[in-house]
Design a protein around this nucleic acid. Structure first.
Length: 809
RNA sequence: GCCGGAGUGGCGAAACGGCAGACGCAACGGACUUAAAAUCCGUCGACAGCGAUGUCAUUAGGGGUUCGAAUCCCCUCUCCGGCACCA
């Protein structure tokens, strides 16, 4: 035995060069003759630090599937690109005065080089970068359509303003009143804003969730984010003139109203101000609320703060009774109507408020004691509880009352059924430089003029200073660029740019046709390639990117520009790779941070790929193990030597060899399809344990099949072995091995015999033995006889080919 | 608090309601070697035995369904992720 050295560095270099030279993975998107498979990774932000250990995990998984699909005869599209607008490049520009473009370009090159070293089968000719004007031309174009169709609007609204960053942030960029990046304080402030009307898509987005194969947790998060609630909007008359509406999902409790609460920062309380007797107190509370907005509100609201509006009452339309008005900061001006009816007996929040402000309560639903805490809808719904103290509705069940009360109020003309969403406008502009300029002009006569298509892309101007002055957008510094005077249109360009999520909201459409300069993508191609068959990415995008992408795509679908309602058919989140200490890799424990490039240098890309896939289930978080990497490396070395050094013989495999071979094909094929890659690798290890050994011969069929099965996971070494086996072409398009059940069949099987569920013996029976034969054989077994000695056999359960369970006592 | 997911050897983990712990790591014993590394073979829940084997325990804890439960149902605890006054 000559013990050929596994020189992974040379092998990997050789095959990466081969793939590049032969354009092995270039996809002819116009080839519709084969079934398509579109595998997609969430494209990275090209940061200066390069890849981390988590990147290869998801990327390897899609790579494995796309390589297998290609071998199974699919035309595979597996592209990669960069979400290249973002804050680090902007900060670099501010501190150095250089254009972020160069910095970004350099990072893209570093990333691409690292990704190529991992041997992914990306078609690099399809690469996109969101900061490339040829790309963002179409981001701007889609935005323009959204504007023309009324979905993108320029409106006055309260925003999350971060003074330190000098920009507006979306809700998901604010955590506990601080900015996600940097942790700077964020305040609420009214500003003219570009927004996208996402509530207009709420129903369609909810509907779409039903048809896609996504993790349940992610779908649930999206449902929550949309936050649909069905209820009734009811008009209340104010004593002495005026009216206001409230929204409730519990109309059945309307007879339990003892007070009403308005949002302190709403318009209504301002309108009522002249009639309020304790104005000083009310104004003080309102001021306090405004200050509170930038603090951790939950901390401050242990007790239910608020203030009575003395001298103002309203009439409950259901029974004509008067109710007092309050303001309280638990009522949000931006949700519902900015006013609520308060039923302390049946809402814990109202209960606490009533206790704090000494307000009476009326129980209207029977079935619990409400002296200590409220009897809430979660507890009474669907339990057949009945109404009390509710005039003609007393005695009805809650469900009946919901309908009857709504009907009565509708008849009176004071109520209508409504749906409310937690989902608000998506704020779609940032006071930053490194983003897509919003392609509109504010004309001198006060109108908004979207740029004509031939002026797109509207390219970012070079600046002397990339920092905005006094919280203004950096593009305000571009005094010449800003001025607009063409074709009789005079005005000033919009100076805010789009948020980071703009470019990533449609990149999956562009990959199909990335060089098209006539349209964002050819519809025929989209129709063939969409939806994405497999999308893998981190769970941190569960509501952000994955929601925005669905919105943009759905808009384009409604417009006839995207062929599918939902862009991502199957979504999988890879789990986080933790440090060896079991804690998230990061600055806190630098010695536990793993750099994939180091692993590639020491063990090769194939080992890194194999190890990351063997660590455990793809979706699980799992700690890194340096020893585990050694194990993966050992397996590849063993596999390598098995094929290189053992005699490969042309005899047909014997029955035992065939059985293992076909069992391996079956398990690997099924497991890769379902992304149980760790168990597919286990099976390949079992195969090697059986076939590898000094002096053992390797039937050619077994050798070739093994190499093909391992190739999606460890492509470089397998190409090398394939070549060694006498092939002069890449194995990337070799037909994927097929298994035949007939080779898996056995004549005799070992079955277990249990007595009262306890294993007692194992016996051999014919594979197709009938239940009677099994029972007979089991009862004839010596050990079984001993176990049931002196007992009466009550029942015998037989499971064909598996076991016999004797119930005896 | 609410929603989602998870809890199995020393560790990462396997297991259509049917022999728990496949596969890998670590550990231990052995072969090869002057020696080490690499490699190969073996052991690896506990107890007894040289051994085949036997006995016992066992899938966070408690209850239930079932001939049979890691797996299904109910309750409790712990951990992770998300949301958090949404009317």
């Amino acid at each position: 035995m000559n013990n050929t050295e596994y020189n992974f560095a040379e092998i990997e270099k050789k095959w990466q060069a081969y793939w590049a030279e032969h354009e092995t993975f270039k996809t002819d998107v116009w080839d519709f003759s084969k079934p398509k498979f579109y595998a997609l990774d969430m494209f990275p932000y090209p940061s200066g630090v390069g890849l981390h250990a988590g990147h290869p995990e998801g990327y390897t998984a899609t790579d494995i599937v796309s390589r297998m699909k290609r071998m199974q005869g699919y035309n595979v599209l597996h592209p990669m690109g960069y979400d290249s607008f973002g804050l680090p490049a902007e900060q670099y520009a501010i501190s150095t005065g250089h254009h972020p473009e160069g910095f970004t370009q350099k990072n893209i090159e570093t990333f691409s080089k690292q990704l190529k070293e991992l041997g992914f089968d990306y078609d690099w000719s399809k690469m996109v970068a969101t900061s490339d004007p040829a790309y963002y031309k179409w981001t701007q174009w889609i935005f323009k359509q959204l504007f023309l169709d009324g979905y993108a609007q320029y409106i006055d609204m309260p925003v999350n303003w971060c003074e330190e960053l000098g920009t507006v942030l979306s809700n998901d960029e604010v955590i506990d009143g601080k900015s996600e990046r940097g942790g700077y304080p964020v305040v609420r402030k009214n500003m003219k804003q570009w927004v996208i009307n996402q509530p207009a898509f709420a129903e369609k987005l909810l509907e779409g969730l039903k048809e896609i194969d996504w993790p349940e947790s992610t779908k649930e998060m999206q449902r929550h984010w949309i936050g649909k609630s069905e209820g009734v909007e009811v008009k209340f008359q104010i004593v002495g003139g005026g009216e206001f509406s409230i929204f409730t999902t519990c109309i059945e409790t309307i007879y339990g109203i003892t007070f009403m609460v308005l949002a302190p920062d709403g318009q209504l309380v301002q309108d009522l101000m002249p009639r309020i007797k304790n104005q000083a107190e009310v104004k003080a509370y309102i001021d306090e609320t405004k200050k509170k907005n930038d603090m951790d509100r939950t901390e401050l609201n242990k007790g239910k703060s608020g203030c009575r509006l003395e001298g103002v009452t309203c009439i409950n339309p259901a029974n004509g009774k008067e109710a007092e008005l309050f303001i309280g900061d638990f009522v949000l001006a931006s949700y519902g109507t900015g006013a609520v009816m308060a039923v302390p007996s049946h809402d814990q929040r109202d209960f606490e408020y009533a206790v704090a402000h000494d307000i009476p309560m009326i129980q209207v639903i029977d079935g619990a004691d409400v002296s200590q805490k409220a009897f809430e809808k979660g507890e009474y719904l669907g339990k057949g509880c009945k109404l009390i103290n509710s005039e003609e509705f007393t005695g009805l069940t809650v469900e009946e009352a919901k309908e009857a009360i709504t009907a009565k109020l509708e008849k009176m003309g004071v109520a209508k059924r409504t749906v409310n969403y937690h989902f608000r406008e998506w704020i779609f502009a940032r006071q930053r430089y490194w983003g897509e300029p919003v392609p509109v002009v504010h004309t001198d006569d006060g109108k908004i003029y979207p740029l004509p298509d031939d002026e797109l892309p509207l390219v970012l101007p070079e600046l002397e200073d990339y920092k905005g002055q006094g919280g203004k957008a950096p593009l305000e510094n571009a005094t010449e660029w800003k001025k607009y005077d063409r074709n009789g249109v005079k005005g000033v360009r919009e100076t805010s740019t789009m948020p980071g999520s703009a470019g990533s909201s449609w990149y999956f459409l562009r990959y199909v046709d990335p060089h098209n300069d006539k349209e964002f993508a050819n519809y025929e191609l989209l129709k063939h390639w969409l939806p994405v068959d497999l999308y893998i990415g981190g769970p941190e995008h569960a509501v952000g990117h994955l929601m925005y992408s669905r919105i943009w795509n759905r808009y384009l679908y409604d417009k006839g520009l995207s062929p599918v309602k939902e862009p991502f058919k199957k979504l999988v989140h890879q789990g986080m790779i933790l440090g060896e200490n079991g804690i998230k890799m990061g600055k806190r424990f630098p010695k536990y941070v793993v750099n994939p490039s180091d692993i590639v240098k020491k063990y090769g890309a194939d080992t890194l790929r194999l190890y990351e896939m063997f660590m455990g289930p793809l979706e699980a978080s799992k700690p890194w193990s340096a020893a585990g990497v050694e194990g993966a490396f050992r397996f590849l070395k063993r596999s390598f030597r098995m094929v290189m050094d053992q005699p490969v013989v042309d005899r047909a495999p014997n029955a035992d060899e065939l059985r293992l071979l076909h069992a391996t094909i079956k398990k690997v094929t099924n497991d890769l399809e379902t992304l149980n890659i760790n168990t597919a690798i286990s099976q390949l290890m079992i195969f090697v344990n059986a076939f590898a050994g000094e002096g053992k011969e390797l039937p050619r069929e077994a050798a070739e099949t093994f190499v093909l099965l391992l190739s999606p996971i460890a492509p470089h070494v397998c190409e090398e072995l394939w070549e060694h086996l006498g092939h002069d072409h890449t194995l990337a398009y070799e037909p994927w091995p097929k298994y035949d059940e007939k080779h898996l069949a056995v004549d005799e099987v070992e079955i277990l015999v249990q007595v009262l569920g306890k294993p007692k013996s194992r016996i051999m029976v014919a594979a197709d033995a009938t239940e009677d034969a099994m029972r007979e054989a089991a009862l004839a077994d010596e050990k079984v006889k001993a176990a049931i000695e002196g007992k009466t056999v009550r029942k015998v359960i037989c499971v064909k080919g598996r076991l016999v369970n004797i119930v005896a006592n």
